[in-house]
């Protein structure tokens, strides 16, 4: 079994301890999307203001485990101020990082197909969540806020 140090990296615990961009935004003008993990009851709300093609502001509320909360916190810091296009690239890059294990387990990795290249996307702190893929049960915790952000982005840019 992989060691817990792969999962509970200091930077993750830091975001869990002191979550960034925590709170709510008035709707409207903000858009809000709710996500929940029916397995464990974790809930998250992502508030988003998009203007002029930019993520102007983002706030996170809800509750959950250290992985879901720190992932949400890092995500909010990463996408704030980015263009909508950059935010979407980041979502894809993060999902790609998280689904490595799922794909390998499902056995549907197609070797001859070039995987999407996200080397241009700077994940920064988020890279610390790479260890989560060694704990497949927790991947859903890490991706909860990202799925919810996708929803909020869709509504905000509809």
């Amino acid at each position: 079994m992989p060691g817990l140090e792969d999962l509970y990296r200091e930077i993750i615990l830091d975001h869990y301890r002191s979550p960034r961009n925590r709170g709510t935004l008035e709707t409207p003008p903000a858009h809000m999307a709710k996500g929940h993990n029916p397995l464990c009851g974790d809930e998250i709300q992502v508030y988003l203001i998009v203007g002029d093609g930019y993520v102007e502001d983002v706030k996170i509320s809800g509750q959950g485990c250290s992985i879901s909360q720190s992932s949400a916190s890092m995500m909010s810091a990463a996408v704030k101020g980015k263009t909508v296009h950059e935010a979407r690239r980041m979502i894809d890059a993060f999902r790609s990082m998280m689904s490595v294990h799922e794909r390998a387990v499902a056995g549907n990795r197609i070797d001859h197909e070039e995987p999407d290249d996200y080397s241009d996307v700077k994940l920064g702190d988020l890279d610390a969540l790479r260890g989560v893929v060694k704990f497949p049960v927790r991947i859903k915790c890490a991706t909860l806020s990202w799925n919810t952000l996708t929803q909020a982005l869709e509504e905000a840019t509809a």
Partner: peptide, 28 residues
């Protein structure tokens, strides 16, 4: 500490417990 994190740490020493809503969300 969130129950998921507790059960994750407990699993390091093979202590098997359930973390979650236990199919009793109204009670939660």
């Amino acid at each position: 500490i969130h129950p998921h994190d507790i059960s994750q740490v407990l699993d390091q020493t093979n202590v098997c417990v359930r973390a979650g809503h236990h199919c009793a969300k109204p009670l939660m």
